[in-house]
Nucleic acid binder design. Structure first.
Lengths: 172, 172
DNA sequence: AATTATTAGTTTGATATCATACTATCAATG
DNA sequence: CATTGATAGTATGATATCAAACTAATAATT
């Protein structure tokens, strides 16, 4: 049960109104997003440098996909990390060179290159996972879960709005 | 005055709890950010292509800074668009080539290159501004102002958390 | 069964990004 | 006023990004 004061707190917070219009706010949110993304990248890159590891932030993004689900194809990875499939060719090439993953042609659909983590890739996971976790814990510290959830909803809604509009453009 | 039902609505929305932990939510927010950013870029790039204009999204970002405040130096622009200063050399070079801006050495501090919009740059502004506005209006449509404000707060807090941590790393 | 459309991946080329090292200028300190 | 430190910008090289054109394999349609 929520107390009267909690309720009041919520409402007060909601009532404090920004004088800028929605468009300006959307702009600022966009800018904040880039900034945060950069801090995330810098956070990991500092760790990479500190430990003198031969891997890039972008390659780690791909590894993180595979730690979650091994043996997916390049297009699936591209969709998750939101990059072009030709970037995948480039980055997976580099990961193969570093013995972090291996390409295997899918027997069921020979168009697919299934990407599997190697033993060395697993070692990397053991080393990196605590850092990534730590990074997100740092990022999220002192923020209520519900607020993050709300923010995700807002950003997703914006993406959907833009996606829908893009669809229209294609039709026209 | 907020009605009982409005109050209830706020609370209900806040109470719907995501089962994932904060860290996972922070991760998802990060991913959403990239996606939204990509849609913004694609939105503008579609317009550029449609009108066969010789300018990139990145250059437009810089122009948008100058439309807001003309005659700032390259470092100031870099801070606003959150890019390296060497990227500024590259992008401003390209804008100068296209006659959109001009570099002028600051008489008061000869280290500064002050960047001014040219007449052609003003024409571009007239053409592009409605699109950018339209884009953000599209993005923000159907979202309450207060929710965007809240999201900005969340993302800024995360950036601050990461910035503070980075500071520590430098000390150590 | 043949044709067409779709999908996964690669190649290539243009662009953008950033770290690093460098020059030039200004500021601060002794 | 000389030295040291900080700041703005540039040059360079390595990496990453994406669009477009392409090949190969599969799915859908006739």
């Amino acid at each position: 049960m929520i107390s009267y004061y909690q309720c009041l707190n919520f409402i007060v917070e909601i009532i404090i109104v920004d004088t800028r219009n929605t468009t300006e706010l959307a702009r600022e949110l966009g800018r904040c997003l880039i900034e945060m993304r950069n801090f995330l990248r810098q956070y990991i890159q500092a760790k990479i440098k500190e430990h003198q590891m031969d891997i890039s932030f972008e390659m780690i993004e791909i590894m993180a996909c595979l730690w979650n689900k091994d043996g997916i194809n390049q297009q699936e990875i591209a969709d998750i990390v939101i990059k072009d499939k030709s970037s995948m060719t480039y980055l997976v090439d580099n990961l193969v060179k570093r013995n972090m993953v291996s390409r295997k042609v899918d027997a069921d659909d020979r168009r697919n290159n299934l990407i599997y983590i190697t033993k060395e890739g697993r070692l990397l996971q053991k080393k990196l996972n605590p850092w990534i976790l730590e990074m997100y814990e740092t990022a999220a510290s002192g923020i209520q879960k519900t607020k993050i959830t709300q923010s995700i909803k807002v950003v997703k809604k914006m993406s959907e709005n833009l996606k829908a509009e893009k669809g229209l453009v294609i039709i026209m």
